[in-house]
Amino acid sequence: MAKLKELAAQEEKFTGGHRGCAGCGASIIARQVLMAAENPVVVGASTGCLEVFSTIYPYTAWNVPYIHNAFENVAATMAGVETAYKALKKKGKIKKDLRFIAFGGDGGTYDIGIQALSGMIERRHRVLYVCYNNEAYMNTGIQRSSATPRGAHTTTSPAGKVIPGKMQLRKNFTEIIIAHEPAYAAQATFGFWNDLVTKVRKALDADGPSFINVYAPCRLGWAYAPEKTVKVSKMSVETCIWPLYEYQDRKYRITVKPKEKKPITEFLKMQGRFGHLFKWKDDVPIKEYQAEVDAIWERLLKRSETE
């Protein structure tokens, strides 16, 4: 259990003054994740919002070593960094105990970067991969990704006259990672900061590859007022849109169970990207989304009880 006072007293590893939007979820994640790290860390980021707004030359928001290579390869790049560390440590050229963290958005993780990430985990590189999942390609201007949920409006799945937003369900990416049997995997979101910090510590302690899928409300792409970011994050958990759980030693554990599971409409109505669904001729998109959320939650409950 992390203490807020102790975390706040730390030197900032991800500083302010960067060019993230007011109310940006990704920047909160970068800060909380780095605060949680107890060992010195080396960070990599894939191309995306976080990379762009934190490192416009000659400025950098990173007070830790940082590398950006390309869009789809942060996992491979950090696998290389971690391997160099192993090689140089073996030769006595590095003394310290370091940890390695890769940050990628959902586009760079669910879509274009899935292969490199799969390889990184299969080869057992000791890297924590953090997906800051804002459910679309926000950096290029809000295009749909395989993380975009059913019904959401994006610029490539617009709320049209005949097609109401994205027609497909989102990919259950955390489960794809779990199928790789990583040393640690979890879902988190910054509205539950202590849960996130605890998970980052567990992931960094695990002797092997780890993955945390962090839900990252995006005020611009999701269309809500900037001051609502943390509320949206919390509501995602209360509606079970984003269940908080972890997977370690072949066991599932739900880490935050909502007292009362709210209907997803409570979450949807907070955001402009779902606004059109409430004016649509039928409730099919909302029903389909609710059914998916329910099924996944039910399965999770079962798994965390029996396994």
Binding site: I67, A79, V81, T83
Partner: peptide
Amino acid sequence: SACCGASAA
């Protein structure tokens, strides 16, 4: 990509 990471390290 891994070569880049390792070389930068």
